[in-house]
């Protein structure tokens, strides 16, 4: 197996409280690994440690077999990019989309800014007219597309997705999920996606880890989950809840 991301014995503590208590998983190149759990389970904290946004971790995090340290190089961010939950909070309100998208290119002194910005917009199916607008002039779904375009402009190999559709309406969520699935196929990206929504994880990912109280209590494939092969009670609970909420005719649990 060609391993893209390898995490072993990852522990994260804020002061005296340990919020991630030894998590191990690895993700193959081109795969999508989902991390599902309730709020406070430590799922986003794991993702932020992968992205280098958190320095209070210990253990091993390796991309393509190379362990990374607390501080990441510029080259790291051409390989790994992150998309955050709330596109309102993660886009600079006073910058145009053009400025937001070209930031990475300016910092890294990359040429052909014009072409790359236009290509990134086309990649996420946004019209070129969006380029000179501000984030508040776009809809929630368009803003999340911009956030994805900003991640793609670095031409990364790995996308870390933190609840990328939780702030969106279900109809827009469907569009963004389709876009993410399409991008992964076309560009051969590797995803790690965090969500509290089991159905969303199961839709996009082949494998997932279930987190509870800072521990990854179970790792299983989506197929196993669908066939009812989950062994840990928390996974079973989440699956039962998800099923009961997605049906319209059956009464609630």
């Amino acid at each position: 197996m060609n391993t893209m991301i390898d995490v072993a014995g990852l522990r994260i503590a804020f002061g005296a409280s340990e919020v991630v208590k030894g998590v191990d998983f690895n993700v193959a190149r081109g795969a999508c690994f989902g991390i599902v759990g309730e709020s406070g389970s430590g799922k986003s904290t794991v993702l932020r440690a992968l992205a280098g946004l958190n320095r209070d971790w210990s253990g091993r995090i390796a991309f393509e077999g190379t362990p990374v340290g607390l501080k990441r190089s510029g080259a790291f961010y051409t390989k790994v990019q992150m998309v955050f939950q709330d596109p309102f909070g993660s886009l600079h309100p006073a910058q145009t989309i053009d400025r937001i998208l070209s930031e990475f290119l300016l910092v890294n002194r990359t040429g052909d800014i014009d072409g790359r910005v236009n290509r990134a917009l086309a990649e996420v199916a946004l019209p070129p007219s969006v380029r000179f607008r501000f984030p508040h002039q776009l809809s929630g779904g368009q803003r999340q597309r911009v956030a994805i375009a900003r991640a793609l402009i670095a031409e990364p190999e790995v996308l870390l997705l933190d609840e990328p559709t939780s702030a969106l309406d279900v109809s827009v969520q469907a569009e963004v999920l389709n876009l993410l699935a399409d991008l992964r196929r076309r560009l051969g990206l590797t995803y790690v996606m965090v969500s509290h929504n089991l159905a969303v994880i199961a839709h996009l990912c082949e494998h997932m880890g279930v987190m509870q109280h800072g521990e990854m209590v179970e790792q299983l494939s989506t197929r196993t989950l669908r066939e009812g092969g989950a062994t840990h009670p928390h996974t079973r609970d989440l699956a039962a809840l998800s099923l009961s909420l997605e049906t319209v005719d059956a009464p609630a649990v």
Partner: peptide, 13 residues
């Protein structure tokens, strides 16, 4: 258009 656990779909309508 909601992803469902019990019915996998390649793309969502």
């Amino acid at each position: 258009c909601m992803p469902a656990l019990n019915q996998p779909r390649e793309t969502l309508p």
